[in-house]
């Protein structure tokens, strides 16, 4: 067999292995109450915080700022809960031995697991789209009457009320960055799940690390750092914080440095996770 054929066969096989791990993890979330409890509690919490604490109606603005502002804080608690089982469960049940005996590279195992948890998070974000529709409706209550006799009126109504009332490009950008940031939170949980070998320990460690990385960009913390160590130190701390990197996105601004930061963070966490899983072979 030629080298090219070898490489092709090996790549195809690796992809099939990665896909198998991904599908199995998604199915595990779906077949157990975990995904449903996560979705229900996450959406309920987000709704309550947006409507009540965020004062959604009081702002009188057709934007989702009171909604997105809670994302980092909710991710700090909910996404470690979603990721804590990814490796800890394997080690508790002894199935890590089964996984490591499969002809799947560590990259395939790590990415398959991360993407499965990320898919569930993405689905949770998709379920918040009615919020997006709401700001469009509230922001542009155009006088187009719906009529069952005239199907075209539905399209006119959608155009006026759904796609025309808010800065939808800005909202879309914020959704994208929120999804990317979710990947960073999940990657913390994934890596610490491999290191902790126990779900509860993994959860506590992940919440702690996620909280540090979130709170580091909190104005209260930054002003404290400024007072104690100066502006430069505060800038450095802010540059490490998820909150700071999500701030521009909340205004609808796509900052490439934040995209690179979150992507790089995910990559580093996955590498740490892969290295730790490789240690199981030692």
């Amino acid at each position: 067999m030629s080298t090219a054929q070898d490489i092709w066969q090996s790549s195809t096989s690796s992809f099939l292995g990665f896909r198998a791990v991904y599908v199995r993890e998604v199915q595990t979330y779906i077949r157990t109450p975990m995904a449903y409890v996560f979705l229900a509690v996450f959406l309920l919490s987000l709704g309550v915080l947006t409507w009540e604490a965020g004062g959604f109606f009081e702002t009188n603005r057709a934007d989702l700022a009171p909604f997105f502002v809670w994302h980092p804080w909710l991710y700090t608690v909910f996404l470690p809960a979603l990721a804590m089982r990814l490796w800890a469960d394997e080690q508790t049940n002894g199935t890590d031995e089964l996984l490591l005996s499969l002809p799947v590279g560590l990259g395939g195992l790590v990415l398959g697991k991360l993407l499965a948890a990320w898919t569930i998070t993405g689905f949770a974000l998709i379920l918040t789209i009615p919020m997006w529709l709401t700001v469009n409706f509230l922001g542009s209550p155009a006088a187009v009457e719906l009529s069952w006799m005239n199907p075209g009126s539905l399209f006119k109504w959608l155009g006026a009320n759904v796609f025309g009332g808010a800065d939808n490009v800005a909202i879309f950008v914020t959704y994208l960055m929120s999804f990317l940031m979710a990947g960073a939170y999940l990657s913390i949980g994934l890596a610490l799940s491999a290191i902790a070998r126990n779900q509860v320990t993994a959860f506590i460690m992940s919440v702690f690390v996620a909280f540090i990385l979130t709170a580091a960009g909190w104005p209260v913390v930054l002003s404290g750092v400024t007072d104690s160590f100066g502006v430069d130190a505060a800038d450095s701390v802010a540059r490490l914080s998820f909150l700071s990197h999500f701030e521009a996105a909340q205004r609808g601004v796509l900052e490439w440095r934040s995209v690179i930061y979150f992507t790089g963070f995910i990559g580093l966490s996955c590498m740490l996770c892969g290295l730790w899983v490789a240690r199981l072979r030692e």
Binding site: T12, L16, G17, R19, A20, V21, V23, R24
Partner: peptide, 8 residues
């Protein structure tokens, strides 16, 4: 799952 992971 095993069959997929083994590349079938």
């Amino acid at each position: 799952f095993l069959a997929s992971a083994r590349g079938l």
